[in-house]
């Protein structure tokens, strides 16, 4: 997926002179996660802008440049540091279009790698996606496959809206088919990633490989799950999830973030609102346990989602 993101950025920079990238260590260093390796030499320091360690200024200046006609792709070294820029993202980038009655556009992309499971401790392991998705005005997407990553990043850069583009760092290693020719993936459409008839799993990002592995295990026992990848959290497209649920009548929601007030909570609420008559069993949520992520390997893993927890949840709803 790393290569897919890198290709998307490079292609868009070659296509549109107004696209540039900025962030900490993205240039000379080559990007903390190496997504922008080689960009500094290829595009130079005008378009590949190393910034000071100033998240408030990164968020705000990228938004300002976008308002005045550019298409900045600003990278937060990790999403944990985007907390420092929360006001710039939520109160400014996501509000100017509405607050000024459509007179100002803010086509900025904030890229932010995140997620737990790498023994980085409580401050560096957040999956806070839902917090960003709470507010109208900001598109929030998080791809799970290289194909989606490339197509969605290109769409995000071309979008006239501000986009929070969340990359789960574990997925950088994910491999998958990416076509040679140019393609785009829409920013507001969910996608069916596996067909099945017994239980619907609704998930996204790191939840997808976890759910896929669970699905393989369940399949060996004769249980077939259907997997819907949300891809976008704001706006939220539940059309495929509802369609699938009306067929299976059972669902499990899998997300890496904390479960309390999480994405699962929203999805369960919407399913019961829109498909109450189809409900055969309480919908289960599999999510990060409600504790800060600890450093110790096994302890950290015990708090995160994994295929076994998904398998157990599916069996409970059956």
């Amino acid at each position: 997926m790393r290569q897919a993101l890198s290709d998307a950025l490079r292609e868009e920079m070659l296509r549109d002179e107004n696209v540039f990238i900025m962030g900490e260590e993205i240039g000379v260093w080559g990007g903390t996660y190496a997504v922008t390796r080689g960009f500094y030499d290829e595009f130079g320091e005008r378009r590949v802008r190393d910034t000071p360690i100033s998240e408030m200024a990164i968020g705000g200046a990228a938004a300002g440049a976008a308002m005045n006609g550019l298409r900045p792709v600003a990278e937060f070294m990790t999403i944990n540091f985007a907390f420092v820029a929360f006001d710039a993202i939520i109160n400014h980038a996501a509000k100017v279009h509405y607050m000024f009655n459509g007179n100002i556009k803010c086509p900025v992309v904030f890229r932010a790698p995140g997620g737990g499971g790498r023994q980085l401790g409580a401050t560096h392991s957040h999956t806070p996606d839902v917090i960003f998705a709470h507010f109208p005005g900001l598109r929030v997407v998080s791809p799970a496959t290289p194909y989606d990553a490339k197509g969605m990043l290109k769409s995000a850069i071309r979008s006239d809206d501000p986009v929070m583009f969340i990359e789960h760092a574990t997925l950088y290693q994910e491999r998958g088919e990416v076509p040679e020719e140019e393609y785009l993936v829409p920013l507001d459409k969910s996608d069916k990633k596996r067909d099945g008839s017994d239980v619907t799993i609704v998930t996204y990002a790191q939840g997808l490989p976890v759910s896929m592995e669970a699905a393989d295990k369940l399949s060996k026992e004769g249980i077939e799950v259907e997997i819907i990848d949300l891809r976008s959290l704001q706006p939220l497209d539940l059309s495929l999830a509802l369609e699938s649920f009306k067929k299976t009548n059972k669902a499990v929601v899998v997300e890496e973030g904390h479960g309390t007030y999480g994405i699962g909570a929203e999805i369960v609420a919407q399913i019961q609102e829109h498909a109450f008559d189809y409900l055969d069993a309480p919908i289960k949520r599999v999510a990060q346990k409600q504790a800060p992520l600890p450093y110790a390997r096994e302890l950290e893993q015990s708090a995160l989602i994994n295929p076994d927890r998904v398998v157990a949840a599916v069996k409970e709803v059956l």
Partner: peptide
């Protein structure tokens, strides 16, 4: 480009608007 109600919030926007002119 507007008035902004969060104290200081528009200051980096000003930097960004300037960046766009320079760019």
């Amino acid at each position: 480009w507007g008035g902004y109600a969060v104290v200081g919030g528009h200051v980096p926007l000003g930097a960004g608007i300037a960046l766009a002119e320079q760019y």
